[in-house]
Amino acid sequence: MIRRLVFVLFLMLSAWPAFAVNPDEVLADPALEARARALSAQLRCMVCQNQSIDDSNAELAKDLRLLVRERIANGDSDAAVIDYVVSRYGEFVLLKPRFETKTLILWGAPVILLLAGVAAMLTAVRRRPTGFTGTPLTEEEKVRLAATLSETEQDSSR
């Protein structure tokens, strides 16, 4: 009984983002609605910040979804809709920032950090001493080592 209840609860919660777009927001034309959903998936909810407005239940996300659908219904292109939203809310509203001069550090930082890591590893490997750098064994140590090795060989042959 409890397993079924947990399973039903899991199914309900796993579909939670699907309830973000309300039926009253959906456009009548399926092609325009598909465009609106694709654009909504690219825009960040300013309240939730790690969800798209398509997935968010926040009131601001709903307003943005309606704005996107209104602009599409008025005949704006996808780029014009995105530009309009960015002009009102800034670049942060984009889940995937544009590749521009001001975002060059954002896009280039992973590559720079990867190259710096590889260079640090190569430097560490090159500085590591190679071969034996300790002092050689004395005659007494050599004799003790030979005796220990011969005892080990005799024990293993038994």
Rank of each mutant, 00 (worst) to 15 (best):
M1G: 15
L5P: 00
F7T: 09
F7Y: 08
V8M: 06
F10H: 12
A15E: 04
W16Q: 13
W16F: 14
A18L: 15
A18W: 11
F19D: 00
A20V: 00
N22Q: 15
N22K: 12
P23G: 13
D24Y: 12
D24G: 10
E25C: 05
V26R: 12
V26F: 04
V26W: 03
L27Q: 01
D29F: 05
A31S: 04
R35F: 03
A36L: 05
R37A: 09
Q42S: 08
L43E: 01
C45L: 03
M46Y: 06
Q49C: 05
Q49F: 08
N50C: 10
Q51R: 14
S52H: 03
S52I: 02
I53Y: 04
D54V: 03
D55W: 08
L64A: 02
L67R: 12
L67H: 07
I72K: 02
I72A: 01
A73V: 08
N74M: 14
N74Y: 11
S77F: 08
D78H: 06
D78S: 10
A79P: 02
V81A: 00
V81F: 04
I82F: 01
D83L: 06
V86W: 03
R88L: 15
Y89P: 02
Y89A: 06
Y89S: 02
F92G: 14
L94T: 04
L94G: 02
L95K: 08
P97H: 07
R98D: 11
T101Y: 07
T101N: 00
T101I: 08
L104F: 11
L106P: 01
L106M: 07
W107D: 04
A109I: 12
A109E: 09
I112N: 00
L113E: 03
L113P: 02
L115N: 10
L115F: 13
A116F: 12
G117Q: 04
G117S: 06
G117V: 05
G117A: 05
V118P: 01
A119D: 05
A119E: 04
A120M: 11
A120T: 08
T123I: 14
V125I: 13
R126Q: 13
R126A: 15
R126S: 13
R126H: 13
T133D: 04
G134Y: 05
P136H: 05
E139H: 02
E141S: 08
K142A: 12
K142N: 09
V143H: 00
R144T: 03
R144C: 00
L145P: 05
A147Q: 09
A147V: 06
E151S: 14
T152R: 15
T152C: 09
T152M: 15
E153K: 11
S157L: 14
